[in-house]
Amino acid sequence: MSPDDLSSASPGLAGSRVDHVYARVKDDIFEFRLLPGDRFTESQVAERLGVSRTPVREALYRLEREGYLFVHFRNGWSVRPFDFVMFENLYELRMILESAAVRKLCDQTDLSHVEVLKPVWLVPEEARVRDARAAAELDEIFHTTLVDAADNPELARVHNDVIERIRIIRRLDFTQGYRVERTYEEHAQILQAILRRRADQAVLLLNSHIAESRAEVRKITLHRLQSARQS
Rank of each mutant, 00 (worst) to 15 (best):
D19L: 06
S16V: 03
E31R: 14
I29R: 03
S78F: 01
L60R: 07
V85S: 11
D139P: 00
T144A: 01
D38G: 01
S7M: 12
L90M: 13
R33Y: 10
F30N: 04
A135M: 15
E125Y: 09
A136N: 08
P119G: 07
V102Q: 04
N75H: 15
A59R: 06
T41F: 04
V85Y: 10
Y61V: 01
L93T: 12
V120G: 00
A132M: 03
L13P: 00
F73M: 13
R17Y: 09
S78T: 02
R133D: 12
R103A: 10
L138P: 00
D38R: 02
R103C: 11
A100H: 07
E58V: 11
A127Y: 15
L97M: 10
D139I: 00
G67D: 10
E98Y: 02
L63E: 03
E115Y: 04
G67R: 12
R74E: 15
N89F: 06
L13Y: 13
H20W: 13
Q108N: 01
E92T: 14
A46Q: 04
V71G: 01
R94E: 10
S8R: 15
S7N: 14
K118R: 15
G50E: 07
E126T: 12
T145M: 10
L90K: 06
R94H: 05
E64G: 02
S43D: 14
F40L: 08
P11M: 06
E126S: 15
Y61A: 01
R33I: 06
R24M: 06
F87C: 04
L13E: 09
K118F: 07
P36T: 04
S16W: 04
P11K: 06
E140P: 00
A149Y: 07
Y91K: 03
T54F: 08
S43R: 15
E140S: 10
R57M: 09
R33W: 08
T109W: 05
L49W: 08
R57W: 13
E125H: 12
P124K: 13
A23P: 00
E66V: 01
